[in-house]
Amino acid sequence: MPSMSFEMYLSLCVALYVTGLYILIAKRNIIKMIMGIEIMLMASNLLFVTLSIFMKNGYIDPLARSIVIISIAIGGAIAAIAISLAIYAARLFGTTDVTKLSKLKG
């Protein structure tokens, strides 16, 4: 059995998720926002793994873990696309501040 209890893992997931959400809402730097997205992604991956262990005693669900592996791979792809978009946005506008990435009035 893992050394930490289910509740501890769960609180860790929530903490990570809220951290990611806080970064998304509060931080203006586009790179930081991408990091926030990644943290939220990891929080949900961790939740999946936790549930795969704790849902049934003495048995680890392999399906949840395989999904998490796919999710990590997709997360990498998302990060790559997001960073490339960030680079283009930075080239176009000359800034990484999301509040300035606006061509419309207001």
């Binding site: 959400l21 998304l24 809402i25 203006r28 926002m33 999301v98 509040t99 606006s102 207001g106």
Partner: peptide, 17 residues
């Protein structure tokens, strides 16, 4: 009500949350 639409993604994410 137009003032709700700031065009800043942080604010939109906050609304979504």
């Amino acid at each position: 009500i137009r003032r709700i639409q700031t065009g800043i993604s942080n604010v939109n994410i906050a609304y979504a949350a």
